[in-house]
Simulated scan of single mutants.
Amino acid sequence: MKKFLHILVLLAAALTLTACGNLKNSDLANNAKTSNTKTKTYQTTDTGNNGYTVLLKNGHYVTSPIAGLTATGNDNSVDTREIERGLVQISKGVYSTNSYVFQEGQYISAATANDWLARKSKSNPSGLNPEQGEKKHYKPFYLEEILEQDYLTGSGSNYHIGGISIGLAMNSIDYYQKTTGGPEYQEQISRTAQTTAGQTAAEQIVMRLRQRKALKKIPITIGLFSKTSKDSLVGGTYFLSGTAAANSSKITKWKSISAQAEVLPTVGNKKAINSSDASSFNSFKESIQNYFPNISGVTAILRYENGKLSQENISITTQFYGYEQVQSFTRLVLSTAKKYLANDVPIEIKIGSVNDIQALVAKETGDSSYQVHIYGGE
């Protein structure tokens, strides 16, 4: 249980990276200048279940200077998590978890990212969004966010950059005002337009990164992500990825990514992606609601890759606070999950009131056992 809780802490710090265990000290000369009088100390975490070892500096997780930057402020927290998680999954197909160490991106500065996310203009020729059009011919912001992830190779004190992954979050809807303080309008952006704008931006970014000495001879992977609407309960998905080989400034082949996500129960007459998965969730939901009638809501976010369920996250909102009630209900959720939910995918079930998380029932991989933690309990 202690190991499980430690994993949760690291997940909160590193979001989608699975990393846990003891720290390993190394004096790492990693693209950072060191003082003659004070040597910087680096550590790595032990790798977890099919995850990357994470690089720490002076015992601290290294964050990216461009995290959270957006072109227009169209920021959805569920998108943010999926942009990072999805890029890690793409990267695993290029940079082996056995050979590369992860670190949040350090090569693109905040100033550079802001210039790239802005519109192209005489004063900002590096802008990757189109020039401002006339009022009758509005040109939307296509590129909303840029995410950088660095993958390092080596051992001991000889780690160095081995590859970079860049996530480009493309708007599916651009929100704008014709006049300051005026009504908000929406511009729908097709997948074809997302693809064209995303691939064009990717080519420019690869060429610009190649101008840096440290990045001339490493692979550069680009993923194109489609953002959802501002009020969506489920995050967007990646739809294309490609890699510029070492010494190349061209992505010669783009790979389509088949990914879908949905919220259950569905609303209105919308059909579920997979009727069997929806039926299993409904059976789970009805079972726990029949046992404890004072349940405010049970919802799930299901993610699919290549048509197959890859992850299921369930949220249960309760209206009780008693210790024994939470204990009893958590045991019920565990047994019901084992009975009705898929056995071969990661599952996370959060139980909580409106204000607090009361318990967590989860399994990290398809073949692992459920772990249970009751907050404030045993």
Rank of each mutant, 00 (worst) to 15 (best):
L5Q: 12
H6Y: 14
H6P: 01
I7T: 15
I7L: 12
I7C: 07
L8V: 06
L11R: 13
A13F: 11
C20H: 09
G21L: 08
L23P: 05
N31D: 10
T34D: 14
T34E: 14
T44Y: 05
D46S: 13
N50D: 13
V54H: 05
L56F: 15
L56K: 04
N58I: 03
Y61L: 15
L69R: 10
T70W: 03
T70V: 07
N74G: 05
D75K: 12
R81Q: 08
G86H: 03
L87R: 01
V88I: 15
Q89D: 15
G93Q: 11
V94A: 09
S96L: 09
T97V: 15
N98K: 13
N98C: 02
S99E: 15
S99K: 14
Y100S: 00
F102K: 00
E104K: 06
G105T: 00
Q106K: 11
Y107F: 13
I108N: 02
A110C: 03
T112R: 10
A113R: 00
N114H: 06
A118R: 05
N124A: 04
N124R: 06
S126P: 02
L128D: 00
P130W: 02
E131F: 02
E134F: 09
K135L: 11
Y142E: 02
L143A: 02
E145L: 10
E145Q: 15
D150H: 00
D150R: 00
T153E: 07
S157R: 09
N158E: 14
Y159C: 03
H160P: 01
H160A: 15
G162D: 02
S165I: 06
L168D: 04
I173G: 01
Y175L: 10
Y176C: 07
Y176L: 08
Y176N: 11
T179M: 02
T180W: 08
G182C: 08
T192E: 15
T195P: 01
A197F: 03
A201R: 06
I205T: 08
L209F: 12
R210V: 04
K216D: 06
I222Y: 07
L224P: 01
F225P: 00
S229F: 03
T237V: 10
L240F: 06
L240V: 05
L240S: 05
S249M: 03
K255E: 11
S256Q: 08
Q260K: 14
E262H: 09
V267H: 10
V267W: 04
N282K: 12
F284A: 12
F292E: 15
S296D: 14
S296W: 05
I301P: 00
Y304A: 01
N306E: 14
G307P: 04
I314N: 00
T317M: 08
G322T: 15
G322Y: 11
Q327F: 12
V333S: 05
V333A: 13
T336Q: 11
L341F: 03
N343W: 03
P346G: 03
P346T: 07
G352Y: 07
D356A: 13
A359C: 05
Y370M: 02
V372I: 15
H373D: 06
I374E: 03
I374P: 02
